[in-house]
């Protein structure tokens, strides 16, 4: 469990970083918190010839939050996002979800952007970004683009980022209207990747009737799956909606796989149960003006 040899680069500006990435092309890999990449290197499941360490790009170590959303720079650790009070005030879902991501020591090191770039279909933040319709900003030598989450994730551990591109930030928008959002999951142990996890957003109209219900899932498909469940609950009062029906609808739309921790049938069952639970709670929050 020692990595194969690689050339190590440690740029101090974003321009230098993208220059190096451009130069090394597909032979290069970005090293952020290393919590996912280093194990892969040690097990020689990845053996890039060049490692571009971005830990000196201190300009990217930010969390910016305002009424529109939360933008997280590539060097913000999970813990920075988790503890940011403004981010919590505008989008409590982020902190609540991050508490399910690994353990404090790993969150102190692992980055939120790295987790998105890594695109593990079990990674909670991929689902949250997809649920909220967030965006990903990528820089390359001589250019920059912003991509919608739906286009960014292209499969398990794969994204539309090209060789030579650095993800500089991701933006989690605050949902519009009277909404409540909840994350819930079942994991084998505290902090493990979920067997099934779901994040939901419920939107209520001025009469506290359900106007919209959406859910995103981890560990239920090759990439974060977002489903619209509005049809099952539209128009119902927030405290009397048919949440179990929404859960059933969701379960029917998902195609999870068996793995060594759970059967597909159990996962689908969890999706049904957790979706209903989360929607009920989210609706309650929306009604109470809690987000």
């Amino acid at each position: 469990m020692k990595p194969a040899g690689f050339t190590y680069h440690r740029p101090v500006t974003v321009d230098d970083a993208v220059a190096v990435l451009a130069e090394v092309g597909p032979a290069g890999k970005v090293l952020a918190g290393g919590q996912s990449l280093v194990p892969l290197l040690n097990m020689r499941l990845a053996a890039p010839e060049h490692l571009v360490d971005i830990n000196r790009l201190s300009g990217l170590a930010y969390v910016r939050a305002d009424g529109d959303g939360v933008t997280v720079g590539a060097l913000a650790r999970h813990a920075d996002v988790e503890r940011d009070e403004t981010a919590y005030a505008v989008l409590p879902l982020l902190r609540e979800t991050l508490r399910h991501v690994a353990h404090p020591t790993i969150r102190n090191r692992g980055t939120t952007v790295g987790s998105i770039a890594h695109a593990d279909p079990a990674g909670e933040l991929t689902a949250v970004l997809a649920l909220l319709g967030g965006t990903v900003t990528l820089r390359r030598a001589g250019g920059q683009r912003t991509v919608a989450a739906a286009d960014f994730f292209t499969g398990p551990m794969s994204t539309c980022a090209d060789a030579g591109e650095l993800v500089t930030s991701v933006t989690f928008p605050v949902p519009e209207g009277r909404t409540g959002a909840v994350w819930t999951e079942v994991a084998r142990r505290h902090g493990d990747y979920a067997v099934c996890g779901t994040g939901v957003v419920v939107t209520l109209d001025d009469d506290l009737r359900v106007a919209g219900a959406r859910a995103a899932y981890v560990s239920m498909g090759p990439e974060p799956v977002v489903v619209d469940l509005t049809e099952a609950v539209a128009g119902a009062m927030y405290d009397d909606a048919g949440w179990p029906a929404a859960g059933r609808l969701a379960a029917g739309l998902l195609e999870p796989d068996d793995d060594i921790h759970a059967t597909a049938a159990y996962r689908r069952h969890l999706a049904e149960v957790l979706t209903a639970r989360a929607l009920r709670e989210a609706a309650g929050r929306a009604a109470g003006g809690q987000r």
């Binding site: 142990r189 505290h190 921790h261």
Partner: peptide
């Protein structure tokens, strides 16, 4: 220990061999 039919140990790491944490 999860062995497949070919005799491969599918969970040969602490990621997938679930030793309880203090929380469990």
């Amino acid at each position: 220990m999860v062995y497949d039919d070919a005799g491969q140990l599918l969970n040969a790491s602490f990621m997938d061999f679930l030793m309880p944490y203090a929380t469990e």
